[in-house]
């Protein structure tokens, strides 16, 4: 009985040492903090935070140049996740960036569209299809609801439609955004 306990303990000790040595020897630079922040952001690329996209905003947060409360599409959930990650106090959304709105979707009124391609150039996620003098349309699955296509449209043919999550449109969180090592922290949005 005692031999068994001692043998297993020694085995554990030796294997532990091997692993400890390996983790030092094969150390990999961990995820830079900007990557982790970028993963928490909603990737709407809307620019409401005054940065030209989610990635630059993440880098600014990582560098300490921007506050964590400048992301209206992400809303409270994102702010809380960021506060959790960076171990700072969560604070309410910054008014100058906008207000939290339910997720919307751009819809082009196809009768009024003149095919000017201005909205295509404005779309940060290439969710608008069409060519010059031809009617455009929005790929619903790709649209992030950032509203950047509204100002350039000369005939105001784009409307924002509220989308409610129903059993047909609900999707599992993107698996790439779930960090296995630290648990399901990033999956909860």
């Amino acid at each position: 009985m005692l031999t068994a306990i001692i043998a297993i303990t020694l085995l554990a000790l030796v294997l532990g040492l091997v692993l400890g040595y390996a983790s030092i020897k094969f150390k990999v630079e961990g995820d830079p903090i900007a990557d982790q922040i970028d993963k928490l952001l909603p990737q709407t690329q809307c620019g409401q935070c005054s940065f030209p996209g989610c990635r630059p905003y993440a880098e600014a947060i990582a560098a300490g140049e921007a506050d964590i409360n400048r992301c209206p599409p992400g809303g409270e959930a994102t702010i809380e996740a960021l506060a959790d990650l960076l171990e700072v106090e969560a604070k309410p959304l910054d008014d100058e960036c906008g207000v939290e709105k339910p997720k919307t979707l751009a819809v082009i009124d196809e009768d009024r569209c003149i095919g000017c391609t201005l909205c295509i150039q404005a779309c940060p996620v290439d969710a608008i299809l069409g060519s010059a003098k031809h009617m455009h349309t929005v790929i619903a699955d790709e649209c992030t609801g950032c509203e950047l296509c509204l100002p350039p449209c000369p005939v105001d043919c784009i409307d924002m439609v509220e989308t409610e999550v129903n059993p047909n449109t609900w999707r599992w969180p993107d698996p790439a955004r779930i960090d296995i090592k630290v648990g399901d922290k990033n999956g909860a949005e």
């Binding site: 091997v18 692993l19 390996a22 983790s23 094969f26 150390k27 990999v28």
Partner: peptide
């Protein structure tokens, strides 16, 4: 397995 993971990661 843990060892392999470390090596592959590196």
């Amino acid at each position: 397995v843990q060892f392999t993971e470390l090596v592959v990661h590196k």
